[in-house]
């Protein structure tokens, strides 16, 4: 069972406002227009609070635009009901978080299997796929370890394996190396690049780290809820 093929993603005049109309209204995104082609590796940079995570949440269908349109291959997805967005998220999106967010009560293999279980993949298939993914991220012998028994680098590699479980077309990483040392950061980025290239997946990485950003083929810079720079390398 494969995930959705990498979609062409478009945002048109996307606005995301929190506490709209209230005294503490926050306009996190203020009219974003962007297009992402399948297979792109995009870095998103900018100071804290500029809207990077909000953009990532919208692209990953964790959140919905207040106004504007978000489409996958021309089909509006941003305003779909949560049930539909959850299905698209399950089949089409892989999330990698700065703090890994592994479930502490599950082993590494069970964490990797979790999205596959949600897709009702047969037990033997998901076992085999989880083992293969853990081997791919260099954790073949750690399948039965619990998150608290893993190092930070190992936890993030499990998180990457989990994100790849349903073979998504869109990989979203929020500061994936933020809590890792240099060697582990490099290993994770190598892994993400390898996966992106092998599967023609779209990879968006939110980062403050210039070294991480330098590996991307396209660079977005955000300030105050707007994209102020969008540069693609030749």
């Amino acid at each position: 069972m494969n995930g959705l093929r990498p979609p062409r993603i478009e945002l048109r005049s996307v606005v995301r406002t929190y506490a709209a109309g209230g005294a503490d209204e926050v306009r996190a995104l203020q009219g974003i227009d962007l297009t992402f082609a399948p297979g792109e590796f995009v870095s998103v940079e900018g100071p804290s609070g500029c809207g990077k995570t909000t953009l990532l949440n919208l692209l990953g269908l964790l959140d919905a635009p207040t106004s504007g349109e978000l489409t996958w291959d021309g089909r509006p997805v941003g305003d779909r009901p949560e049930r539909v967005r959850a299905r698209l998220r399950l089949e089409g999106v892989g999330f990698i978080f700065q703090r890994f967010y592994l479930l502490p009560t599950l082993t590494a293999a069970e964490n990797v299997e979790l999205p596959m279980r949600a897709r009702r993949l047969p037990r033997a298939d998901r076992r085999a796929r989880a083992d293969a993914l853990l081997a791919e991220v260099g954790l073949a012998g750690r399948a039965r370890a619990y998150p608290h028994q893993l190092s930070g680098g190992e936890e993030q590699r499990v998180a990457v394996a989990r994100a790849l479980g349903n073979r998504p077309g869109l990989l979203l990483a929020d500061e994936p190396t933020g809590e890792l040392d240099t060697a582990n950061s490099r290993a994770i980025l190598d892994l993400l690049e390898r996966v992106r290239a092998a599967r023609d997946a779209t990879l968006l990485v939110v980062t403050h780290n210039p070294e991480v950003a330098a590996r991307a083929g396209r660079h977005l810079e955000m300030r105050d809820g707007r994209v102020v720079r969008d540069v693609a390398e030749a």
């Binding site: 479930l103 979790l114 949600a118």
Partner: peptide
Amino acid sequence: IRRALGLSRGS
């Protein structure tokens, strides 16, 4: 996390 991974509200 489960919701972010795509698990449904029903589950």
